[in-house]
C-alpha cells in the first residue's frame, strides 16, 4: 500500500529494521557486557550450588562464548551495513 506522496512499504520496513538494528543491537551489546561481568546472574548461579571449581569454570566459559556470540552478531551486522553502502553503486 503506497501513495505517490509517501512510500508506506519503505516506511514500515525502515521502522521494523530500524528497531531491530538500532535498538536490538545495543541491547545485544548490553547483554554481552552483562554476561561478562563478574557476579552476573549467569556466573553467580553456577558458583553457588556446589561451589565446585569445575562447574563455575564451565559456566564462565559458556558466558564468555555467549558474549563472543553477541559481539560477533553485532560485528556481522556492521559488516553487512558497510557492504550495503558499497553496493548501492
Amino acid at each position: 500500500m503506497s501513495s505517490s506522496w509517501i512510500n508506506l512499504d519503505a516506511l514500515w520496513k525502515i521502522i521494523v529494521f530500524g528497531v531491530l538494528l538500532g535498538a536490538g543491537l545495543p541491547a545485544l551489546f548490553a547483554i554481552g557486557l552483562r554476561v561478562l561481568e563478574p557476579g552476573s546472574p549467569a556466573t553467580v548461579a553456577a558458583e553457588s550450588p556446589d561451589g565446585t571449581a569445575g562447574s563455575a569454570a564451565q559456566a564462565n566459559l559458556a558466558a564468555r562464548a555467549f558474549a563472543v556470540l553477541c559481539f560477533a552478531v553485532i560485528l556481522a551486522a556492521i559488516g553487512w551495513g558497510i557492504y550495503e553502502i558499497v553496493n548501492q553503486a
Binding site: A10, K13, I14, G18, L21, G22, A23, L25, G81, I85
Partner: peptide
C-alpha cells in the same frame, strides 16, 4: 546506533 540504522536503512530506500 539508532541514528546509524535509520540513516543507512533510509538511504538504501
Amino acid at each position: 546506533s539508532a541514528s546509524a540504522a535509520v540513516i543507512l536503512l533510509s538511504s538504501s530506500f
